[in-house]
């Protein structure tokens, strides 16, 4: 291959473009969050300015503090993640070990439920939760979150369980481990990676969920996504605060994205490269 200077330059330049198209808007928001409201509206925009934490102070300790919303988001996301794993891990294992015809049918059912547009489900949820008095409760919303997290989690986990050769279980059975101990000591440790990927994804999706939260939540259960939305409709021009709020609201997921980068790429690709190909 010929690596001419021009070619390298072009590659470097396009990589730079790439970085700026995706990275810069986020960076811009980060910069904005350290400005004063006056600096935000300066024209031409100020790249050099005196950074201040005023916006953060306002968002965290001001009249409409985001802290309760953070708590709300944490409860919802952790609750949904825990519950999903509790159900999806055994289900994924069972599905991976089912006989083929049953497996294909169940696999298709799981996949189909994943395709339902949320707007289609939200009306019945609203009506049902209203009837049973679970509107604006954590229990109600967490159960509803299972609709999107459970099919996805099962789908993801199945492909991990399928990777474990059956002989591994057979060896454990011969070693007198029994069904439950085989699952616990031999199978689960080997799908740790898959469980990690699944956890990251469910958490991300639950944290970022908006539609269900805005309709089925309320004054008690109001995660950060809803709070952010309300922020803009109430206070049109306080952009520094908005940016600071967004940074706090999205901080956990951005951090997760950076730390669990490999897991996320894997989760995205598992479905595309292999998981979907087999069923």
């Amino acid at each position: 291959m010929r690596h001419t200077f021009a070619r390298r330059f072009a590659l470097a330049a396009s990589a730079g473009m790439l970085l700026s198209v995706w990275g810069f808007p986020v960076l811009w928001a980060l910069l904005t969050s350290f400005k004063t409201e006056r600096d935000v509206l300066a024209y031409p925009p100020k790249v050099v300015f005196e950074p201040t934490l005023a916006a953060y102070r306002d968002v965290l300790f001001g009249a409409s503090s985001i802290v309760p919303n953070l708590v709300s988001s944490i409860i919802l996301s952790l609750g949904a993640t825990f519950l999903t794993l509790l159900v999806a891990v055994p289900a994924g294992y069972a599905l991976a070990r089912l006989e083929l015809p049953t497996k294909r049918a169940s696999g298709f059912y799981v996949l189909a439920t994943q395709m339902l547009p949320p707007v289609g489900l939200i009306i019945p949820y609203y009506l049902v939760l209203q009837k049973v008095g679970l509107l604006d409760t954590y229990v109600g919303l967490i159960v509803i979150y299972l609709t999107f997290s459970l099919p996805f989690a099962i789908w993801l986990l199945v492909s991990y369980f399928e990777d474990i050769p059956r002989e591994m279980e057979e060896a454990a059975l011969l070693d007198r481990a029994g069904r439950f101990r085989t699952l616990w000591y031999v199978i689960l440790p080997q799908v740790r990676g898959g469980i990690a990927v699944t956890t990251v994804f469910i958490f991300l999706n639950a944290w970022n969920e908006f539609l269900f939260a805005v309709v089925l939540g309320g004054n008690r259960v109001r995660p950060v996504t809803v709070a952010m939305f309300n922020f803009i409709s109430v206070e049109q021009t306080r952009w520094a605060s908005l940016a600071a709020g967004a940074m706090i609201a999205m901080g956990p997921v951005m951090l997760l994205g950076l730390i669990a980068q490999k897991h996320i790429v894997k989760g995205l690709t598992v479905g595309a490269v292999k998981g979907g190909g087999r069923r």
């Binding site: 002989e167 057979e170 060896a171 080997q190």
Partner: peptide, 14 residues
């Protein structure tokens, strides 16, 4: 009975 598998089936995490 004990068995040696063709693929050995060693537990990779142990």
């Amino acid at each position: 009975v004990a068995m040696v598998f063709q693929s050995y089936a060693l537990y990779p995490h142990m």
